[in-house]
């Protein structure tokens, strides 16, 4: 799919603000600020999904990450003492910062290089662009300016229970393991004694 006009502008705005917010997440000193920047990053990514016509994923992104995971994060920040970091006693960056920056730049440059040579594959062809513009009005009349319900969710559901049924079930085991692990690691010895069956 190609992005044209305002869509392209929106894409670049969203992409760059995602990146900036991502950098702010790791560089903010206050944990709450980090969490808020993370919310912003996640919302931006959800908007990018909408741009890709993946409404279901965007909705899930907002509901699960912004709604669920972030609330948990904020709870943890509330419960855990983070004052030491906030009072500038702790160094925010270790000596590994410059190697990390170098590595990131290297990765970025190599990505740019790799994408550059593959660029024509992502560029609209004259014939195809014409076909798209021909299709576009038909599509817009069909969709009626967004009044039609997207079949996105249905497709995801179908493939989740058909093609991806096995990984889906393995994921349920994964969640069980994570839960067992969380209980195992967080349970204190006092609680353990409390629930022990009496001999």
């Amino acid at each position: 799919m190609q992005l044209h006009g305002w869509e392209a502008v929106l894409f670049y705005v969203l992409a760059f603000s995602t990146l900036i917010m991502g950098v702010l997440v790791v560089s903010a000193r206050l944990a709450v600020h980090s969490a808020l920047f993370l919310i912003s990053t996640l919302v931006n990514i959800a908007l990018l999904f909408i741009l890709l016509r993946a409404e279901f994923v965007a909705g899930v992104q907002i509901l699960v990450y912004v709604g669920g995971v972030m609330v948990l994060f904020l709870f943890v920040i509330m419960l855990v003492q983070t004052r030491a970091e906030e009072e500038a006693k702790v160094k925010l960056y270790t000596g590994q910062m410059w190697p990390a920056v170098m590595l990131t730049l290297l990765l970025a440059v190599s990505f740019f290089f790799a994408m550059n040579s593959a660029q024509p594959a992502f560029r609209p062809q004259p014939s195809e662009a014409a076909a798209q513009s021909k299709e576009a009005p038909a599509e817009s009349t069909k969709s009626g300016a967004g009044s039609q319900i997207s079949t996105d969710t249905q497709e995801v559901g179908q493939s989740l229970y058909k093609e991806a049924a096995l990984p889906f079930e393995i994921a349920s085991v994964l969640l069980l393991v994570a839960m067992v692990g969380a209980v195992l690691l967080a349970r204190g010895t006092k609680q353990e004694k409390l629930y022990e069956p009496s001999e």
């Binding site: 040579s117 593959a118 594959a121 062809q125 014939s127 195809e128």
Partner: peptide
């Protein structure tokens, strides 16, 4: 798309 593309780096 009718145009030679070097995808090997990617």
């Amino acid at each position: 798309l009718g145009q030679a593309v070097d995808m090997r780096y990617l």
